[in-house]
């Protein structure tokens, strides 16, 4: 069974952490992954940096620009990760935009992910419709789970379609925003969390965008299976370096 599905079966709320590969330093990738696992994180999203990250706010944009300047590429990321399964068993997801994957070759990209032990992908600008008709078979051939986003504006009909195409979890964007834009949740979010919880979807939901501390983590996981933190962790990395992961995770859990 895929490590993501195994993890989702555990009777606990999950904490997933996003970081940008190649940031702060180009060779930090494996160290950050190992430190996050040791700190008790449940899942990791490895950000493949892109020059034009449309869905991201200033923090992740800046880390992506820095990572690219550091020389990060798809090929280099795969090279850095080739032995990662010798040291960690945590579910690993690559999150990136579609164009770099398209240029690498979708089949070659998926094949490489499987060889390394990557469990899934999140590709914000690959719409579910295109995935469903053109790429699903390839992803499945290499045992990769593709994760889709939903937002407060996504219709019930489309959520049901996304649920039917998904085979892991649904990435629930907490509010209409780019990453790192808003902090904290209000009534609108609570209503949205409740609405989705009441839909009884077959895939569990993990909430992302706007989570930065214990309070927001707790609010999000009251209704959902877990939560994802990105921008807040990148800020912590920028300030405290790669070896202070515990310090950050302890403020969340």
């Amino acid at each position: 069974m895929n490590r993501i599905n195994q993890k989702l079966q555990e009777d606990k709320k999950l904490l997933s952490i996003y970081f940008t590969a190649g940031y702060p330093n180009v060779d930090d990738t494996a160290t950050i992954i190992q430190n996050l696992e040791t700190s008790g994180v449940d899942m990791i999203e490895i950000g493949l940096p892109f020059s034009d990250p449309l869905a991201d706010g200033p923090t992740i944009q800046a880390s992506s620009t820095a990572a690219l300047k550091n020389g990060m590429t798809s090929e280099l990321l795969f090279e850095q990760l080739k032995d990662i399964r010798q040291s960690v068993s945590i579910p690993l997801i690559i999150m990136g935009y579609f164009n770099p994957m398209l240029q690498y070759g979708i089949e070659a990209f998926c094949e490489k992910c499987q060889a390394i032990g990557i469990d899934g992908l999140i590709i914000p600008d690959l719409p579910v419709d295109v995935y469903h008709s053109e790429y699903k078979a390839t992803f499945e051939k290499y045992g990769l789970i593709n994760v889709f986003l939903i937002t407060p504006q996504t219709s019930d009909k489309r959520i049901h379609f996304i649920d039917s195409v998904s085979d892991g979890f649904i990435y629930m964007v907490s509010s209409a925003s780019t990453t790192g834009a808003k902090v904290g949740f209000g009534n609108t979010q609570t209503e949205y969390f409740e609405r989705i919880a009441d839909m009884n979807l077959k895939n569990p939901q993990i909430v992302g965008f706007g989570i930065s501390n214990n309070e927001t983590f707790t609010q999000a996981t009251t209704y959902a299976k877990g939560a994802i933190i990105g921008s807040a962790f990148i800020k912590h990395l920028t300030k405290n370096g790669v070896n202070a992961t515990d310090e950050f995770i302890n403020t969340i859990l």
């Binding site: 020059s51 449309l54 690219l68 798809s74 164009n99 770099p100 398209l102 690498y104």
Partner: peptide
């Protein structure tokens, strides 16, 4: 080369790694 920019598949100037130049 064929790729994705600003939401459409079209010809665009990019690095071999798919970063828009």
């Amino acid at each position: 080369k064929e790729g994705i920019i600003h939401g459409c598949k079209t010809l665009l100037m990019q690095t071999p790694d798919g970063q828009i130049t």
